[in-house]
Amino acid sequence: MKKLLTLILALAMVLALVACGNTANNGGTGNNGGSANNGGSADEGGEADLITVGIINNDPNESGYRTANDKDMKETFTEENGYKATFAYSLKNDEQIAAAQKFVQDEVDYLLISAAGTAGWDSVLQDAQDAGIQVILFDRTIDADPSLYVASIVSDMAQEGKTAVDWLASQGLEEYNIIHIQGVMGSAAQIGRTGALDDMVAANENWNLVDQQTAEWNAETAQQIVQAAIDSGKEFNVIYAENDDMAKGAVAALDKANISHGVNGDVIIMGFDCNKWALEELLAGNWNYDGQCNPFQASYIDEIIKGLENGQAPAEQVVILEEKGFDAATITQEDVDTYGI
């Protein structure tokens, strides 16, 4: 009985692995098949073969941002564009590093990394360099010697925060009483977006933080935080939420208490990430500001790789993505369609 059970479980695991392999590789090859082919193409070298890339990303279910990022990658690195891409996903740094090691063994041509954590990458990047693999960082930067990677295409979260806070300052309110809803503490987005606001509050007499709380990217927690502020009769006129979901939760609490918000409302609503539905709220005048966090890095990477293949080094090692901030007063339907994710 036990043996039978073990057998069934083992079979189930194998099946699951096969299934995962198929979904993870949109390029059309299974995990093992992919690696064998990779070796072949590396040997053949300069022929008009496919460029093999190993892409290490965070779990696409993490957020709308990540889903858009992953989709963008998959749409760019296709066989039609001359790539053979293999994807590995994890939200954990150590698992990502293990995946990177595997890609190095498979001798991919390029290794693209969106790191979950900033530390611990040096040795595997050194291995990649020794194996002649070019490393390109996207979306997030890491603490490693810049000589270990050829380029990084990243978002400047601090700049995102600064753009948003500057916009808020330009609204010319007499007093800023802000409820600040933070993301998961310690994440790059939280640090960058919090830093800009904290600096401004420290520097100005008329900027006050009524509440500063982490809702961990969760709409429901954000709603409870704002609800608690309303129930205790706190006065506030700005909600600075570090992503769209949390802004949505905050707005739900305001709606319940009949506090007007958005354009011509009593409370200014600010969000980040530019989800499509959030930009629509902006267009409808229910929110005031949404800061972009650009998930579309694939075209930049594509350009750099094509350049490297022709022997040109990238013009700049660090490319900082252009990121906009949208104001409800000026946003158009076209913006929603173009920048909504």
Partner: peptide, 12 residues
């Protein structure tokens, strides 16, 4: 509650 879902944080 929100007429939508976020898989990674709902009911965390």
């Amino acid at each position: 509650r929100f007429s939508t879902i976020n898989y990674s944080v709902v009911a965390k």
